[in-house]
Simulated scan of single mutants.
Amino acid sequence: MIARTISRLPLVAAATTMLLLGGCSAALIEAPTYKTTEVLSFKTAGAPSNVMMLEIADPAKTLPAKTWTDALSNHGFAPRLRFVTNPADIAANETIKPENRLVAVVNPSQNTFGDAICTSPQTGGMEGISERLIVRFGFCNGDNLISETRARFVKENFEEQLFNNAAVLSYQLFPRRIQSNDDDRSCGRFQVNC
Rank of each mutant, 00 (worst) to 15 (best):
R4G: 12
R8K: 15
A14H: 05
A14I: 14
M18G: 09
L19R: 13
L21Y: 10
L21F: 11
A27T: 07
E30P: 00
A31I: 04
A31M: 10
T36N: 03
E38M: 03
E38D: 14
L40I: 11
K43A: 00
P48E: 07
P48D: 06
N50R: 12
V51H: 06
M53S: 02
M53G: 00
L54C: 00
P59L: 11
P59Q: 13
P64C: 04
D70Y: 10
A71Y: 09
A71N: 07
L81D: 00
P87V: 12
D89E: 13
A91P: 01
I96Q: 11
K97E: 07
N100F: 00
T112A: 09
F113G: 02
P121N: 14
G124K: 04
G125Y: 04
M126S: 12
N144M: 10
E148W: 05
A151C: 06
F153T: 11
V154Q: 12
E156G: 08
E159N: 12
E159M: 03
E159I: 04
E160N: 08
Q161W: 04
Q161D: 00
L169Y: 05
S170T: 07
Q172P: 11
Q172T: 08
P175E: 07
P175M: 14
R176Q: 13
I178K: 15
D184K: 08
C187V: 06
R189S: 15
R189N: 15
R189C: 15
V192K: 01
